[in-house]
Design a protein around this nucleic acid. Structure first.
Lengths: 222, 222
DNA sequence: TCGTATCAGATTGTATACATGTATACAATA
DNA sequence: TATTGTATACATGTATACAATCTGATACGA
């Protein structure tokens, strides 16, 4: 044997991961609000563990852009300004249309069915948390057939860092119908294997979302 | 004053940052090779600290994609296969041409001069480590005028995770002349404010780099 | 000979304890 | 009154100690 090489293997369910997932989810659901402080001790008690694995989790979330760490001051839920929101949306448009174009030729029948059923679920959803989760799943299912894991992770992170702002001020009733219509447009284009059209609809969808977030963010935030 | 919001403030030079920077640099210089294990205890002794801040540093580097962490097994310098290298290069092309197109209209005279002087430096460099550092600085200087911090960080991470493979097998003599010529092409197009041409040259530059890395990687790796 | 089980050594994961840095409240001063 | 200095409380940073897990080698049985 020439040398020992790192083998991916199975990853476990470690304490920091559990904590990170909890915090991530709470941030997505806006149970933890932008700018809010995350205290190590408090989280440690909540999970019945010490602060060390909590610190690990916070570091992880910092890497995902959900949390900002300031030395000796603590961890805060990231609170991007309008500028940064715009920047992230532009990155999303770039990366998501790219991934979708790669995905379109690869879609299998099962994958189309998954997308369809997620859309059906989305119709009968009222509360924000479920909407967010299923909306996220739909988009993930759209891009998954591109089979590029690093790209997909990147997109996931970018979506995670801005998506919660839809749900901070807007109600599903206000943006739901538009979203659903656009989602169906995108999926239909994919089913016709028209990658360019699908990408175009996706870009329009994202730009409209950005516009909504911007309008609220400009008035709502101080 | 209405409310105190988490303000970035000055960040310090904490122990984890120092350690992370050291490891990052060592990986860039290929002093730490892909697949190599990074032992907490060893690093802790080297810096005269305990394993806790070392763990923080490793988590940070995981977020940057330079290190893979496997629970209860340790940290390893990331070792992307040819597939992942290709994926990252495609992402780089997407993001770097995007950033460059945004940067072109914003270039100031000073920024052009910085790029020029970096190119001049690059001509008179022989060893790999210096080449790598200045090459990195040149590209960073090209994109910096786009003023989108999150985009720039992303590009930096992507570059960092694949750049070292140029220097693993190739010598500056073999790729230096091509690179320099392409760099000058790109810069000249920027000076003419021709964003599309500059982006085109950049893409060609990256695709040639990818091809070189691929050819070596396919034969060189086991 | 090959595969499997077992155990010692080593390494990582986590809890506890202490050190250090920061924020708030209050007193002193201009 | 506003500003600066100081004390106290509190949160974070890190070292040490111990527990859990993995690695690798050896012993055993088929």
């Amino acid at each position: 044997m020439p040398e020992r090489i790192a083998t991916p293997q199975l990853k476990y369910r470690t304490a920091p991961e559990v904590v990170a997932e909890y915090i991530r989810d709470a941030i997505y659901r806006n149970e933890l609000l932008p700018g809010q402080q995350l205290q190590q001790e408090e989280l440690a008690i909540k999970f019945g563990i010490s602060r060390i694995p909590v610190r690990d989790a916070l570091r992880q979330l910092q890497g995902e852009g959900l949390v900002d760490l300031y030395p000796n001051r603590g961890a805060f839920v990231s609170n991007p300004g309008v500028e940064e929101l715009r920047e992230v949306f532009e990155l999303r448009i770039l990366l998501e249309t790219y991934a979708l174009k790669l995905a379109v030729p690869n879609f299998t029948k099962q994958e189309f069915e998954l997308c369809s059923s997620l859309l059906t679920h989305l119709e009968s959803v009222a509360n924000r948390a479920d909407w967010s989760r299923i909306d996220q799943a739909f988009h993930a299912a759209l891009y998954a057939p591109c089979k590029q894991s690093r790209t997909l992770t990147l997109i996931d992170n970018l979506r995670g860092s801005v998506n919660r702002f839809y749900f901070l001020y807007l109600s599903p009733e206000s943006y739901g119908p538009d979203c659903l219509r656009e989602h169906r447009q995108i999926l239909k284009a994919c089913q016709k294997r028209d990658a360019e059209a699908a990408a175009g609809f996706l870009e329009a969808h994202l730009r409209r979302s950005l516009a909504e977030v911007e309008s609220v963010s400009a008035s709502g935030q101080q």
